[in-house]
Nucleic acid binder design. Sequence first.
DNA 1: TGTACATCAGTGAACGCGCGTTCACTGATGTAC
DNA 2: TGTACATCAGTGAACGCGCGTTCACTGATGTAC
Lengths: 193, 193
Amino acid sequence: MRYEKGHKEATRQHIIEVAARRFRENGVAGAGLAGVMSDAGLTNGAFYSHFESKDALVRESIMYAVDKRMSQLQIAIEKNLTLEQTIRDYLSPRHREEAGKGCPTAALVAEIARQPKETRDEYSGKVESHLKLLASRLPNGSNEKRRRVALALHAMMIGTLQLARAVSNKKLSDEILQSGVKSALEFVSLSSD
Amino acid sequence: MRYEKGHKEATRQHIIEVAARRFRENGVAGAGLAGVMSDAGLTNGAFYSHFESKDALVRESIMYAVDKRMSQLQIAIEKNLTLEQTIRDYLSPRHREEAGKGCPTAALVAEIARQPKETRDEYSGKVESHLKLLASRLPNGSNEKRRRVALALHAMMIGTLQLARAVSNKKLSDEILQSGVKSALEFVSLSSD
DNA sequence: TGTACATCAGTGAACGCGCGTTCACTGATGTAC
DNA sequence: TGTACATCAGTGAACGCGCGTTCACTGATGTAC
């Protein structure tokens, strides 16, 4: 064969990674397949030998991005990074600026709500996993309580990041991030008594 | 004239209202002008005698929807409805289901981040106003503290509603809403001591 | 070892379609005389 | 009072463009004999 073994699988994976970035940057509806394929260094004709449809790529690339974020969280735990550091990283100017490399939920959650059932089904499972992971990082309380706090903390973090991205007033945007860090930390500590 | 006085202004307003709904339902990138005009009972040719471009309609309809929501909040205050009731309405199954009539921030915040500067500038001002209004409803604390809590509460509410919309698992979605209400109330009360 | 054929990832042109936008036209009414 | 013209909100066809998708083809390599 022309290409080394595993080449096609590697190309497919490359398309998924490039797409995951483009979708987070421009939105699912705002990013076209020609752009994705061009980013991947290919022509658009090659797309359909890798995926059944745009919907299929959207689904796979969102799941890939969510999995990757969760494994980063997992690595942070193994490195003994504090929950405070995780919150500070999430609500940082860097994360605000680099939506394409950041949290797929913050970038795409509203569009996920309009995706086909299969995508939303898989996403629901990821949300469950994410909640378990986040709850495991909370200091104390019953399982039920930690799950509830994890949910609120997650919602607060995605909402805060989205607001910071939407406003054009830099001062306000910075305030939103800093205020968000403070409130998130306060919420976690107050909820652990 | 063929039409009564104020007819054109009324038509323009009608287009804005119809567009505000469509954009919230399908996203800005997912909703076309032909669909909006057809919803308004007009043909697409009429559009450009009312607006300069799609961007202009997007900007005007988002500002309209935000203003309308804020005036509803204002009315709730005048009727002496509690903050708890406002939170329960926001995180209700009804609001989850009726995105087209609901909070424009929850539906569109990620897309607003990609809009032209003028739209984001105006939106920034609306966020400021909304924060002031929400802070005024918090029980006590310094102005600075109430502003911070208002921001966190707002972020938590939009994030929670978005998550509840995105997951397809009804049980999980209901849990997200109910858990969100509990956490929001807890956050407000813990932050007021 | 050399030649003929099979494989298959990727190319690039083309498809129909809906997009945002433009424009010549319509037709009901108001105004001028 | 009756006729000619001006107004202007709305019509509907058309524009070029990019979308998702299809497909005949390419060309480098592996395999058969």
